[in-house]
Amino acid sequence: MLENSIFAILALFLLFGSLGMISFKQTVFSGLSFLLAMMALAGLFALLENSFLFLAQIMVSVGAVVVISLLVMLSVNVNEQNLPNEPAKFRWMLFSAILVSPFALLMYKSLTHMNREFVETVAGYGSLKMMGATLFSDWVLPFEIVSVLLLTAMVGAIIIARKEPANDA
């Protein structure tokens, strides 16, 4: 019962956060709504007894990604007339919601088709120890590939965002 009410509260925050994210005109308000949604998602991870994923979501998604997005939004500092003019925004939203709804139904049906229940978790489920044991036994190669990916993304971001063109002539 308690679980259900916590889930309802978190789902409410998540839905309103993401709805606000796609409907606010001001970019910073969208970013703050997105921050709310990401924190609610971290709460859902905690509800699923995934304590390390909860920590990673708080530290990386909320603490790094969303905060740096807000920093970029504030440093770009768009004034009102440079924002895109979207008079038919809500009509487009309704139209695309109708367009997407069959796909959403398909996704929900196929996800719930397994008809499985939550099992009793073993001791230490979701802990850092068990996570690390799985990560460094079965998932070593993806882990290393992700490290290369992060390095590549860092170099690419620096090259794209710097001011003067590369003098490689």
């Binding site: 994923l53 990673a56 990386v60 998604s61 990604v65 990560l135």
Partner: peptide
């Protein structure tokens, strides 16, 4: 959580890194 092992969580952790990139 449905399967009771950590493989899905590890994929989610790697996905968080991909999201950051």
């Amino acid at each position: 959580r449905l399967h009771g092992d950590m493989n899905g969580s590890v994929i989610a952790l790697l996905m968080i890194a991909v999201i950051a990139a």
